[in-house]
Design a protein around this nucleic acid. Structure first.
Length: 172
DNA sequence: CCCTGATTCGC
DNA sequence: GCGAATCAGG
């Protein structure tokens, strides 16, 4: 039931930029459909803060394409962090972890920092936070560094030896 | 498959 | 007026 009180709450939450389902959860006893329906009947479908703000596609700058020198470009890390923030289902702890990686000295590469000269051996699960590429210098005319090229291009070996040697050399 | 808002239409 | 079902999309 839409009491004056609940309608006021709806107006407030909606203008605060909460999504219909979030508003419904907050109010309780109604579904997001009910909220959307009410929002339309009240004529306030335009919202102050769009739930999915249209952000211009970040350009691949020369800065971002520069070869890695010991640690990731802070701009690239911040860009990645912003992507994560925009996805409501990503936990805050995970965002913190991604940002913390910027402080580690290890060389890391994202898709934005790859050049013809960086190793593109994938590390981690593509699409999941923390996924990156090896990023070390690639051998000339190879997409991989020396170590990963060895893993990528394994010669066919005799059955007798293949099982053991393969398994051992495949650890990343 | 998770989510978003928009629209329709029987109640 | 209400909201479930459905649509269209990220």
């Amino acid at each position: 039931m839409w009491t004056d009180e609940r309608v006021e709450m709806l107006k407030k939450l909606w203008s605060d930029g909460l999504s219909a389902s979030q508003v419904a959860k907050q109010l309780g006893g109604v579904t997001r459909n009910a909220v959307i329906g009410k929002v339309h009947r009240l004529g306030l479908s335009g919202r102050a803060t769009p739930s999915r703000p249209a952000r211009p596609r970040p350009q691949t700058t020369a800065r971002a394409m520069a070869p890695l020198r010991g640690r990731p470009d802070p701009l690239v890390v911040e860009r990645r962090a912003e992507e994560l923030r925009s996805e409501a289902h990503i936990e805050r702890a995970e965002i913190a972890r991604i940002e913390a990686e910027a402080l580690e000295p290890a060389q890391r590469a994202t898709v934005l920092t790859l050049t013809e000269h960086t190793c593109k051996w994938p590390i981690g699960d593509p699409g999941r936070p923390g996924f990156h590429f090896c990023g070390r210098g690639a051998d000339s005319s190879s997409p991989y560094c020396t170590e990963h090229a060895r893993l990528a291009y394994q010669p066919v070996q005799p059955r007798r030896n293949r099982d053991r040697t393969r398994k051992d050399s495949y650890a990343i």
